[in-house]
């Protein structure tokens, strides 16, 4: 009977461990997701408005809007002009706060040139970069978890040698 108790205890430990593992992987998944959304946002933003970067970064609320905007861009390529104009007006607003002394027309022209120039790159970055992060998130999370596992030294292995690994899996 004693042995049975001990065994069940062991099982409990193992189960605990498994639970912890699953929790950890969940956690890292979330972390990863948060990270990638951030970076995705950045690529869309940075590529399109390199000059207005500082002002847009300052305004946290702007981030969400611009992200949606970029998605709209992808959807209707024909309304290219419209989105661009919309964007410019958006940029203008932000820019106005940052640079008040400069004349509006000049800024607009400058921005227009840059926008047209960079828009093509933006599209490719959008499709290749912004959507890429959504691919196989679970796999990425698993990889991150494994990397985390390897970075902390396995004391058991250090103490008992490699023999333990095989017994662990059984």
């Amino acid at each position: 009977a004693r042995k049975g108790v001990a065994k069940s205890e062991q099982y409990e430990i193992r189960r605990e461990e498994e639970e912890m593992r699953s929790q950890m992987s969940c956690h890292s998944l979330k972390k990863r997701a948060v990270l990638t959304t951030d970076s995705g946002n950045c690529t869309a933003e940075e590529a399109s408005e390199s000059e207005a970067e500082n002002s847009s970064m300052d305004e946290g609320d702007d981030e969400e809007g611009s992200h949606e905007e970029s998605e709209v861009e992808v959807l209707d390529e024909k309304g290219f002009r419209r989105t661009q104009e919309k964007k410019i007006s958006n940029v203008k607003q932000t820019e106005l706060k940052a640079v008040e002394d400069e004349e509006d027309d000049d800024v607009e022209n400058l921005l227009k040139e840059e926008e047209e120039f960079e828009e093509k790159i933006d599209f490719s970055a959008d499709t290749a970069g912004a959507l890429k992060w959504k691919e196989d998130l679970t796999q990425k999370a698993a990889q991150v978890f494994l990397r985390q596992q390897q970075s902390t030294p396995n004391l058991r292995k250090l103490i008992y040698g490699t023999v333990v690994e095989d017994e662990d899996r059984e």
Binding site: I13, T152, L155, R156, L158, I159, Y160, V164
Partner: peptide, 25 residues
């Protein structure tokens, strides 16, 4: 942190009692 003495002791415990500890950092 395990002292070097303890680490060697754990190896002795394994060889004498066939017991291995679960070690979590």
């Amino acid at each position: 942190p395990l002292s070097p003495y303890t680490i060697e002791f754990l190896r002795h415990l394994r060889s004498f009692f066939q017991i291995m500890f679960k070690i979590e950092t």
